[in-house]
Design a protein around this nucleic acid. Structure first.
Length: 469
RNA sequence: GGCGCGGUAGCAAAGUGGUAAUGCAGUGGACUGCAACUCCUCCAUCGUCGGUUCGAUUCCGACCCGCGCCUCCA
């Protein structure tokens, strides 16, 4: 199967045709850095991380751009509340974001442009729009986009411009020509951070920075533009209006949007305040569990953040690591070496079909069963299958940890039972002696004692291993 | 109100015009001193009602329910 992906613009799954054969230019809307990242952000980050890893594994030359919006009203407000410089706030949040990404093993994008570093590009684009009457300046130094000049407005989010006009809220004292118009540039109020412009000191509006940065990094037209579930309207709709009016070219060929993360059947969001930060979650769960959890549903489906679901992810991952445990020395092979493998084929087909990670996981689980069965009789063959499983896991950014360590850690970030490995292993030795002397009461006593504290002992011919539940 | 998405086993979640993957949990069995792991086995007629069809969970229509966007949010 060739690569197909769901395009928000057409609301259909489409065959993917790159602008340049073999090459994919992709822009993903990143974070507005005024607060810590939450699991909703993590979902987008992980989804496009896995998408990029997979595409590269299939030989695509992916140029992945993900921006940082580091100037914006929310940033200014928060900095003001904190009584700090806006740039101190954004620097701190960018550092935190990078730490979170690293913890989740999210590979950095090829280019990570910052809005404040592209002020000239932003101003150039605004100027073009003003020159072509797609935008107008007002007396207070604002510049607005003239939506009525762009008849295709609404095509991404499937909205009728007339309906938008009817539904738009008109603010008191509004200086806009049309309630649908949106700010490209905002004149600075006294004391506010600002940049010089032909319309006086000010700062960019919310949407223009993405148009400017994406065009700057990837050209007038590029292949894929991605982002979170709340971006099609108005953010991406406005990007299209800005960019297509400014360049006269089609802006983006394929639009991809991730599904929402929910809590108690409600969207997790900053405005609802029901969000869990990435670091909250990582305090409790191993990063791989979080990744696995996010990949256990299709990237476009809503997903529920809950203890139960994270626990289920943990248990599922443990099945993988249990199979890998005896094969710590086996290295992943390259996907090229797997041509002809049934599991690899299923995996690739699933991923080529709009990145169906769940379907791909099903193939991996079937591979696990195969490994567990064959390991009993044919070590060489089992090792080959393990190498394959690790290779597929690498595309997802999972199964790269030491299986023993993962299982002994119980998937938790840190042990809370106060038992050290030395203590546990000392008890295992004592139990071995007891068993040798057929003192099964003592042997079982030790097992029970440890089990009560979450440590499971497992006997095999090679000896006793342990793991945390 | 406008636009869109979804309702599949206890839970999670894929998928297909010809009676439904996978994971967790559970059942029965093999293995084990016991147990765990592992393997085998069992466990769903796919929201409701109609229509098209030889045949629909899969296509069409209506309805019910849930959710998202329409205001800042990934």
């Amino acid at each position: 199967m060739t690569l197909h992906l769901y395009n928000t613009l057409t609301r259909k799954k489409e065959f993917f045709k790159p602008s340049t054969p073999g090459k994919i230019n992709m822009y993903v809307c990143g974070i507005t850095v005024y607060d810590l990242c939450h699991i909703g952000h993590a979902r987008v980050l992980v989804a496009f991380d896995v998408i990029t890893r997979f595409l590269r594994s299939q030989g695509w030359d992916v140029n992945y751009v993900r921006n940082i919006t580091d100037i914006d009203d929310k940033i200014l407000n928060r900095a003001d509340e904190n009584g700090e410089l806006f740039s101190d706030l954004t620097d701190r949040m960018i550092d935190a974001m990078h730490e979170d990404e690293k913890a989740l093993d999210i590979l950095p994008p090829d280019i990570e442009p910052r809005a404040t570093a592209h002020m000239d590009d932003i101003l150039d684009m605004v100027e073009i729009l003003v020159d072509n009457h797609y935008a107008y300046a007002t007396d207070n130094g604002d510049v607005y986009y003239r939506v009525s000049r762009f008849p295709e407005y609404g095509k991404l989010s499937n909205r009728n411009p007339e309906d938008l006009l009817a539904g738009a809220r008109v603010e008191v004292g509004d200086i806009k020509e049309d309630p649908r118009d949106f700010a490209l540039w905002k004149g600075a109020k006294p004391g506010e951070v600002s940049w010089e412009s032909p319309w006086g000191a000010g700062r960019p509006g919310w949407h223009i920075e993405c148009s400017a940065m994406s065009t700057c990094c990837l050209g007038n037209t590029f292949d894929i533009h991605g982002g979170g579930p709340d971006l099609p309207f108005p953010h991406h709709e406005n990007e299209i209006a800005q960019s297509e009016a400014a360049t006269g070219k089609k802006y983006v060929n394929y639009w991809m949007h991730a599904g929402a993360v929910r809590v108690d059947n409600e969207k997790m969001s900053k405005s609802l305040g029901n969000f869990f930060t990435i670091r909250d979650v990582l305090q409790k769960y191993h990063p791989e569990i979080v990744r696995y959890f996010l990949l256990s549903s299709h990237y476009r489906s809503p997903i529920s953040y809950s203890e139960d679901n994270l626990l289920e992810a943990k248990n599922g991952l443990e099945r993988f690591y249990t199979a890998l445990r005896p094969f710590a020395d086996v290295k992943a092979v390259t996907l090229d070496e797997l041509k002809g493998s049934e599991y690899h084929q299923r995996f690739v087909d699933a991923m080529n079909d709009d990145f169906n990670t769940r379907e791909a996981l099903a193939a991996m689980y079937d591979l696990v069963r195969d490994i567990n069965t064959i390991a009993k009789t044919d070590d060489d063959k089992a090792r080959a299958l393990v190498a394959e499983l690790k290779a597929l896991g690498a595309v997802f950014g999972i199964l790269g940890a030491d299986a023993e360590a993962f299982l002994q850690g119980g998937g938790l970030t840190e042990s809370t039972d106060g038992l050290t490995a030395e203590v546990i292993e000392g008890l295992i030795e004592e139990r071995a002696t007891a068993k040798k002397n057929s003192d099964f009461d003592r042997a079982d006593g030790i097992r029970k004692e440890l089990l009560a504290r979450g440590v499971v002992l497992e006997d095999s011919r090679e000896g006793t291993t342990w793991r945390r539940e």
